[in-house]
Simulated scan of single mutants.
Amino acid sequence: MPDVIAKGLDVLFCGINPGLMSAVTGHHFARPGNRFWPALHLSGFTPRLYRPDEQDTLTDLGLGITNVVARATAGAAELTKEEYIQGGEILRAKVEKYRPRWLAVVGIGAYRTAFAAPRAALGRQDRTLGKTGIWVLPNPSGLNAHFTAETLGERFAELKAAVEE
């Protein structure tokens, strides 16, 4: 999966890993039940609901997308702890190179493992990567029944408010 990335973004969103639908289409968060795109819109990050095939226009809005782990799977449960740790190192290098204002990891378990932060909670993290702040958001997968598109939008809006500070 190619990253959607540029230097100096406001937010680099970081998924766990590509799903099979994303791997086939080449578009991040491509599975129809995924709520990433609705949450982006409901939070005010995008002026309208974008489709996965419009991902390359996000950089015009100061947004980008990458993943902790590059390997596509049917589900994140197929990933190993070692893949998360290695992915965290690769992600740190991307942040150092591209220097977004915020890194937003969508998936608390992925963040906890990749960054050796077992007690991390959702929201703004105390640590930074250089000058890049870190924010952890819920996983927008349709399999995550704990959050609706609306409640995800509220969590994304908290990050949007921090971006506007």
Rank of each mutant, 00 (worst) to 15 (best):
G33M: 04
T25D: 10
V24N: 08
N17R: 09
G26A: 05
G26Y: 02
A30P: 09
I16K: 14
H27S: 11
W37S: 01
A30S: 14
F13Q: 07
H41E: 00
M21H: 14
D10S: 14
D10Y: 11
C14M: 08
D10Q: 14
W37N: 03
H27A: 11
G33P: 12
L12I: 07
A23F: 03
G15K: 09
V11Y: 08
G15L: 07
F13Y: 14
W37D: 00
M21Q: 12
A39Y: 05
M21E: 13
H41W: 01
A23T: 03
C14Y: 09
H27D: 14
F13H: 05
F36A: 00
L20F: 01
I16L: 14
L12S: 03
H41P: 02
D10W: 06
G26K: 11
F13W: 12
L9H: 10
V11D: 03
P32N: 04
R35P: 10
L20W: 06
F36V: 00
G33V: 08
H41S: 11
R35K: 15
R35A: 07
H41M: 06
C14Q: 12
L9C: 02
N17M: 08
D10L: 08
P18K: 05
V24Q: 15
F13G: 01
V11P: 13
I16W: 00
H27W: 15
I16N: 09
F13K: 02
A39N: 01
